[in-house]
Simulated assay, not measured.
Amino acid sequence: MAEEQGTDEARAAADGVLEAVRAALRGLEAIPDAAVRARAAGLVLREWPAQRSLPKEIRQQAVDALHSGQGLDFPEIGELIDTDRSRAWRIWKGQS
């Protein structure tokens, strides 16, 4: 039951962040000049791949907080974040 609640909380938090990202991207539609709007959208598309690393860094910091800060081992962390212990370790090491 607690695990299901944690999953529900994570899903709700992720949904909130994704909604904010979508709303921010919709801001491109509000640019009145079509040429400027197209160039701005192109810049966002070019920069987007670089932003992929930010959620990975945040996840790695969270796993480190669980391991180093709270003293949990990787099987415990894996269970908490819905993965296995080896993947939890790879996330902690920045390899996944």
Rank of each mutant, 00 (worst) to 15 (best):
D15F: 08
M1K: 12
W89F: 14
G71Y: 06
E29C: 00
D15Q: 12
D64P: 00
Q95M: 05
Q61C: 05
E9Y: 12
L66A: 04
R39I: 08
I31E: 02
S68D: 14
E57T: 11
A23R: 12
G78E: 04
P55M: 05
D15I: 02
D15R: 08
D8N: 14
G71Q: 06
A62Y: 05
E47C: 07
W92T: 03
R85C: 01
A35H: 09
D15P: 00
M1V: 14
L72A: 04
R26T: 06
D8G: 10
K93L: 15
T83G: 04
L72G: 02
A41F: 06
E76S: 10
E79Q: 15
A2E: 13
R85E: 14
Q61E: 10
G71M: 04
V17W: 11
G71H: 06
D15S: 14
R46L: 15
A14C: 03
A34Q: 00
A24K: 08
V17D: 05
L43H: 10
F74S: 03
S96V: 03
A13D: 11
A34C: 02
G78H: 05
V17F: 09
A34I: 04
P32W: 00
K56A: 11
A38N: 05
I91E: 04
A2W: 13
R52N: 04
A20W: 03
K93W: 01
I77P: 04
V21R: 01
I91N: 03
I31D: 05
Q95Y: 04
I58V: 13
A10E: 06
E4F: 10
R39D: 14
G27Q: 01
L25A: 03
L72R: 13
A24S: 06
A38S: 15
A88Y: 04
P49E: 07
R87Q: 15
H67N: 05
G94M: 01
D82W: 10
E9R: 13
E3F: 14
E3W: 11
